[in-house]
Design a protein around this nucleic acid. Sequence first.
DNA 1: TTGTATTATTGCAATATTACGATTAAATAC
DNA 2: GTATTTAATCGTAATATTGCAATAATACAA
Lengths: 109, 109
Amino acid sequence: MGATKSDLFTRQQNEIAAMAKALAHPARIAILQYLVKKNACVCGDLVEELGLAQATTSQHLKELKTAGIIQGSIEGASVCYCINPKTWKQYKELFNGFFKDVDLQNTCC
Amino acid sequence: MGATKSDLFTRQQNEIAAMAKALAHPARIAILQYLVKKNACVCGDLVEELGLAQATTSQHLKELKTAGIIQGSIEGASVCYCINPKTWKQYKELFNGFFKDVDLQNTCC
DNA sequence: TTGTATTATTGCAATATTACGATTAAATAC
DNA sequence: GTATTTAATCGTAATATTGCAATAATACAA
């Protein structure tokens, strides 16, 4: 055991969980907020920005890239990152859809 | 190492990550969707609903309770669960705040 | 009291995540 | 050419998560 039993759940449930997982670390939230704040391609300075080791930062960037929420392009010796607007919109809509339509009156417990 | 270095990040970043973490498993998404669908207190039948062992289900429920997004009340021999409307609203607002205000034009990469 | 039903907790194994030093690879500078 | 810069990857250790069987705890019924 130890591995998530994703076959028990719907594709949508696995999808939402996967998106949430991509956001489930403060370093990755910090990266995304920084990219959003700069609203442009950011080359290099992410390691200093975070305070984590270069290898660790690279790992978090990879996870965000795998999730599709950021994209990177090689710019000479360095790499430039920015938000992937399409995936960002998808995330936004999926979470919006998940959280809306709850009757907040059901305080039965 | 292996533990998240939460002291490197802001309280808000840790908070968003913690919320995302609570949602980062399909079983927990399934539980929340079920509670939302029923829009009422649900007593008992969550174990059958999920297909996971009783111990595992109980563990996921505990995580959601710790995160504050559901609440449970003892109803005789069983326990009734429902969405915590206040926390649900907080989640909704925090994620909305996180995802809004991005200029989707920055396709520079 | 004894038995039954329901949920929580404990203990453990398998797997995943986080973090970092060391190394590698590729572009640029000299 | 060699040195430097930048980022990815490898290897490894520490920690966390997932899952379940077994057990405990609680409420209720007979």
